[in-house]
């Protein structure tokens, strides 16, 4: 087991606290089959000039505390078979962006202390899903969405950021944005899936967390329906004994 990044500095009254879903992502991304997939995909046999393939860009949408992005960032060499990955995060919550930067710094220091490598962190951006990103750039997209079915979808924060500490109402709104997924818990995830074909690079892949009520089989069918080269498979799951929040991770990618 690879160590989980420390998030003890994070204010969980306004930022999603790492939970079963976060840990399922960590376990899945560092599982032997996913390591094998990522190693193969991002370390093709040396081309004629002997150079490695370009550094992969890993982007997490909705970083929250930053536990997942920091994990991938710190353990890049083990997960991807190369340390020269670029990492970046997007979150609608500015405090989550700040927390993620901090979590990354702490994870880097921990790696350095042990004489180990880490990726190059580009930064975090406050934004709505993939809207700040240029098309065709992302090699690995990770998304732990607001997946809980709710009667309404909370409104996104608006342009300007307020000065000073957020009020209790602001905090509640940020937490609500981190879990409330609207109808079938799929309203936000559907928007991301629609953007995915344009956002991913040719060699790109996405890891998406879903709960049973999101109807993962339908999601996979929808992505496969994009065309013959599109694949979607369940690559991790938890809570098999039942209960409404049975979770799984699906991987979406294109076969060349």
């Amino acid at each position: 087991m690879l160590p989980t990044p420390s998030t003890s500095h994070v204010a969980f009254d306004r930022i999603y606290e790492p939970a079963e879903d976060s840990f399922l992502l960590l376990d899945t991304l560092s599982s032997p089959p996913e390591k094998a997939f990522l190693h193969e995909r991002f370390n093709p046999p040396n081309t004629t000039d002997g150079n490695s393939s370009p550094s992969p860009l890993v982007v997490e949408i909705g970083t929250g505390s930053g536990v997942v992005l920091s994990f991938v960032h710190a353990h890049a060499e083990i997960i991807f078979g190369r340390e020269d990955i670029l990492t970046a995060g997007v979150d609608v919550n500015r405090y989550a962006c700040e927390a993620t930067s901090q979590t990354i710094i702490i994870a880097e220091q921990e790696q350095k202390r042990e004489g180990k490598s880490h990726g190059l962190y580009l930064g975090n951006i406050v934004g709505d899903l993939t809207s700040p990103l240029r098309e065709g750039m992302v090699d690995v997209l990770i998304f732990n969405p607001p997946y809980v079915p709710t009667p309404d979808l909370p409104a996104l924060p608006q342009g300007e950021v307020k000065e000073g500490l957020p009020s209790f109402e602001d905090d509640s709104k940020f937490l609500e944005l981190s879990y409330a997924g609207g109808a079938d818990g799929m309203e936000t995830t559907s928007r991301l899936l629609d953007a995915l074909p344009a956002i991913l690079s040719e060699r790109g892949c996405a890891y998406l967390l879903l709960c049973a009520q999101n109807r993962p089989e339908l999601v996979k069918d929808k992505m496969r329906g994009l065309g013959g080269q599109w694949k979607a498979e369940t690559v991790g799951s938890s809570g098999k004994k039942g209960g409404w929040e049975k979770l799984q991770i699906i991987r979406i990618w294109r076969e060349p």
Partner: peptide, 12 residues
């Protein structure tokens, strides 16, 4: 960009 974090949320 504030304190190294850019804000890409759009006004309505």
């Amino acid at each position: 960009v504030k304190e190294g974090i850019a804000n890409f949320l759009l006004p309505n």
